[in-house]
Design a protein around this nucleic acid. Structure first.
Lengths: 345, 345
DNA sequence: CCGGGTTGATTAAATGTTTAAGCATAACTA
DNA sequence: TAGTTATGCTTAAACATTTAATCAACCCGG
């Protein structure tokens, strides 16, 4: 029905040159006179010819395709934290402006990474990897340009981007202390991460501890609730936390989504934020500002993080010189309605 | 460093057979004895060989790759409605279980669809297309298996999946009427869609009108606010709406995200939900249940919608017989805290 | 014992590119 | 003017597959 796809051969035939010449004008390589270059280009435009990427990638061993590897919540179901959508959005933005396309793959317990070589992927952005996990070695074995985001890999000298999680933990805690609270509950993510000493939550916890130490508040491990940085996790955390809330207590939740669940849970238990307890979140996902109450939080530019990851990835792919293998993005305290001065004294 | 990728040739050589035979065992085609099949398979397993998808796709003209086409908010920036992440998650789920991979591409005003043929994409899931828009014809011209989601295409006989938007609009409106409200403000999406008569918002608007008619309430176009189904849109809608709120007024927002912005905006203007006004949302995005107040909304199973779109797409790709080209998913009223009976009488 | 069918394999072409090597022709240099 | 060099282009191989065509060997019925 529709004219079959025009190939380099068709262009070459009509221009009365060899396909090599056409290839040369496409890629701006080799030697070709201005005259034929124009002729060929005009035919390319006329027929709207674009080279077949499968053929190209077969020859080249690269595809202009990168993949972002996102942790699965359940089998085949992505984490429902809008954080990821913002990251992915940033990655797509960075990639598409450099003419790369983005594939989306989930990673599970037994990760099969063969797709990366099968498809001649040019690179990977891996979100929230852990060097303890199986998949880490699998990924390293690919020997592919790779950027780890929010991963705190120390064993290997890899490219990484993260924001200043330790400082973020410090900032949030210190702010609550400055408001007059002396007992600061930390609601953190996946169980065991802190003990394991890995991941963003561990870093934020370090900052939390540091701020406590500076304030002369003794660290109490019982105030650290590892509930998972999900809405439901925060919601259940409310029940765990309720018993220990007094006039000197504030809560620092290491994700906005968790904070949202927590606030909801507290409400149902008759505790109102910020009247009865102050809550600080983390991430500044785009609706933190629209919640009721709006959420005091540690802001990181999530979209930007995705873009920067692509920068770093493309630098590797194109073997450009780079200042540093690691990009550390700033965090910032956003004060909103979910926190208030402690008037109990 | 790492042994260069093993190809079909290597397997063939070691098995002392031709590459055609290896190809046959891989694809379960042609004739090959049980004995050699086992031999070859064992070598495939031993070397962890997987066929090169570029070469395959060059020959086959298909790639086991589909793309989901998402509207851009700004250039390179996806719509921030978590709705999309849930859809994409469902699509990835459906695709990966059938060994397809998913690419993510944004669509803008001047859409270049050449990537689809260049990459031998097997199909497209297009979200929120409009047959009036430029991109629609571009997509049709590709002549590729395609599923339109939330698009209400009528000009062409295409595969589509949507949920029962008209009924959803009816349901939400009728519920507010049943609570005793007589003046129901509709906060809708992108300006002009209703006049244009296209898209999900138009359908929901039809349902809205129908419910009003059944209740004997006169339709008043001034009560329809087209503000964009974004959080910020809802937020600004609050200002437009504030003047016309009285004791008999309720608000139906055609997206949860917009409802969230609206409720926030109303709060800032001193109006509390549901005490002063009842609000119904649309979508049941995953945190509608966790907001304060939790949101009465029209629920659709967004994740499922993504999965079903893939079903439909794969049926086309594999040329399977299908009952119908259109899948209509149910909607359901979820009653929560943002609505309350009108006690003004 | 001969011709036809079945079985298990091989050969070779084809897919659409890129690229190294080669080859005229023209232009420059000594 | 002869030798070198630069220019513009072509040839052909290579990339890793699939698949149609072919073929040898074997079996079997008449």
């Amino acid at each position: 029905m529709r004219p079959r796809n025009v190939t380099i051969k068709d262009i070459a035939r009509e221009a009365k040159v060899s396909i090599a010449t056409v290839s040369n004008v496409i890629n701006n390589k080799g030697r070709v006179s201005e005259e034929t270059r124009r002729l060929v280009q005009s035919l390319i435009d006329k027929y709207n010819y674009t080279p077949d990427l499968s053929a190209r990638s077969l020859k080249n061993k690269h595809s202009h395709l990168i993949s972002v590897v996102v942790p699965y919540l359940a089998k085949g179901e992505f984490e429902d934290n809008p954080y990821f959508w913002q990251v992915v959005s940033g990655i797509e933005s960075g990639a598409s402006s450099e003419n790369f396309h983005v594939m989306l793959t989930g990673i599970s317990d037994s990760p099969d990474m063969s797709f990366a070589t099968e498809r001649h992927l040019d690179g990977l952005v891996v979100i929230g990897a852990s060097e303890q996990a199986d998949h880490f070695q699998h990924i390293m074995d690919l020997n592919l340009p790779c950027v780890f985001m929010d991963s705190y890999i120390t064993k290997a000298d890899v490219y990484q981007v993260y924001s200043n999680d330790k400082f973020g933990g410090y900032l949030g805690t210190k702010y609550l202390v400055s408001l007059g609270y002396e007992k600061i509950i930390l609601v953190s993510g996946i169980k065991g991460k802190i003990a394991e000493g890995s991941g963003v939550d561990y870093q934020r916890w370090l900052g939390y501890k540091q701020a406590l130490a500076e304030a002369g508040i003794e660290y109490n491990p019982e105030l650290v609730i590892e509930e998972g940085n999900t809405m439901l996790g925060g919601y259940y955390a409310a029940q765990k936390v309720i018993g220990s809330i007094d006039r000197k207590t504030a809560i620092f939740v290491l994700s906005d989504i968790g904070a949202m669940g927590l606030i909801r849970g507290l409400n149902e238990l008759g505790i109102s934020v910020p009247k009865d307890v102050s809550v600080v979140g983390y991430d500044d996902i785009f609706y933190a500002d629209f919640m009721v109450p709006s959420l005091t939080t540690i802001r990181q530019d999530i979209f930007r993080k995705g873009e920067r990851a692509v920068d770093l990835l493309l630098a590797q792919i194109e073997k450009r010189e780079i200042e540093a293998k690691t990009i550390l993005l700033p965090v910032e305290l956003k004060i909103r309605e979910s926190t208030t001065k402690n008037f109990s004294q």
